[in-house]
């Protein structure tokens, strides 16, 4: 039985297979409309995350399966003091696969160790959010036709954003990817990431001005500056509007440059860009459903025609 805890759990080859499957599901939804008939997905969300939970639920429903679960710790037995280990043992009797979000780092791994069903990490604190990374990779591969051979700019909060760190680590496994990190001094990408790139001889630049580099990018990954990451409200207010992507700024961008964002956005991307064909962040949401469909299908072992045999 296999689980997904970390975006790097799957090899590049395994990801290729997963993305091929996701694209096939996109093109032939009818073929997969009932493949999970009789199967149940448990969404165990110890903290609210509407988009991720609904994306998982939508994915399972698209496959003809059913969903059950809870959407906050208050409405689960965790409020009575039940451990993650006990909860997953119980959930294993109710469902065939589980997507778990938990505020504590490593909680889904504890669940996976005790579980009789595949567990997907749907976000554990500031640690990992692998299905977001898989979503980003599938979006890039589907819209650019390949993973690798491009220059990607990552802009905004590169210090606290786990999505960005995971995406960099995942893209570093592909050939000929150049990174441009665009952030204020206070929100620079951590040293361990730049060290990893140096060790792998992967090119990167660190700049403050988006205008300076936007014309050189094939992809622009925007991020939100998150209030909850700051101890000091003043710093948050000073940095939150540091980058706002506007129509004016987009004039300098290439015609085939894609704008990605893990969402939710606040005001770092002006709504006037939403109709620009280069704005790919809502397509990204759709790819999030396809990749979760492919993941559920794969972890349930349905490709082998088996049951939880992966």
């Amino acid at each position: 039985m296999r689980h997904l805890m970390n975006p790097l759990d799957f090899t590049v080859e395994e990801l290729e297979k997963l993305f091929d499957l996701a694209n096939d599901m996109e093109k032939n939804p009818d073929r997969y409309a009932n493949v999970c008939h009789g199967k149940k997905l448990a969404t165990c969300f110890y903290e609210p995350s509407t988009r991720t939970r609904l994306s998982f639920e939508s994915a399972m429903l698209n496959l003809g399966g059913s969903v059950l679960g809870f959407s906050s710790a208050d409405s689960s037995s965790a409020a009575k003091g039940e451990s993650v280990s006990d909860t997953i043992r119980v959930i294993s009797c109710y469902a065939d696969i589980c997507a778990m979000r938990h505020p504590k780092e490593g909680a889904p791994m504890v669940a996976a160790e005790r579980s009789k069903i595949p567990v997907i990490n749907a976000g554990d604190g500031g640690h990992q959010h692998p299905t977001q990374t898989l979503t980003d990779l599938l979006t890039i591969r589907s819209l650019k036709g390949k993973l690798g051979g491009f220059t990607i700019g990552l802009c905004g909060d590169l210090k606290f954003g786990r999505t960005v760190h995971s995406l960099i680590e995942a893209l570093a496994r592909y050939d000929d990817v150049n990174f441009i990190f665009i952030s204020p001094e206070e929100l620079k990408v951590p040293d361990y990431i730049t060290q990893m790139l140096k060790n792998k001889n992967i090119g990167y630049e660190e700049v403050i001005s988006l205008d300076e580099v936007i014309g050189r990018l094939d992809l622009l990954y925007m991020t939100r500056v998150q209030r909850e990451r700051f101890f000091n409200e003043e710093d948050y207010i000073r940095l939150k509007d540091f980058y706002i992507l506007t129509k004016e700024k987009m004039k300098a961008a290439r015609e085939d440059m894609l704008v990605l964002h893990p969402l939710p956005r606040v005001n770092e991307i002006s709504v006037e860009i939403d109709d620009d064909p280069r704005a790919a962040y809502f397509k990204q949401v759709q790819y999030g459903v396809y990749v979760r469909m492919a993941l559920i299908y794969t972890l349930l072992g349905l490709e082998q025609g088996g049951d939880k045999a992966c």
Partner: peptide
């Protein structure tokens, strides 16, 4: 000693 780690709350882990 990471207060955000699951080991801080999960019994017997």
């Amino acid at each position: 000693k990471n207060p955000r780690c699951i080991t801080s709350i999960e019994q017997e882990l």
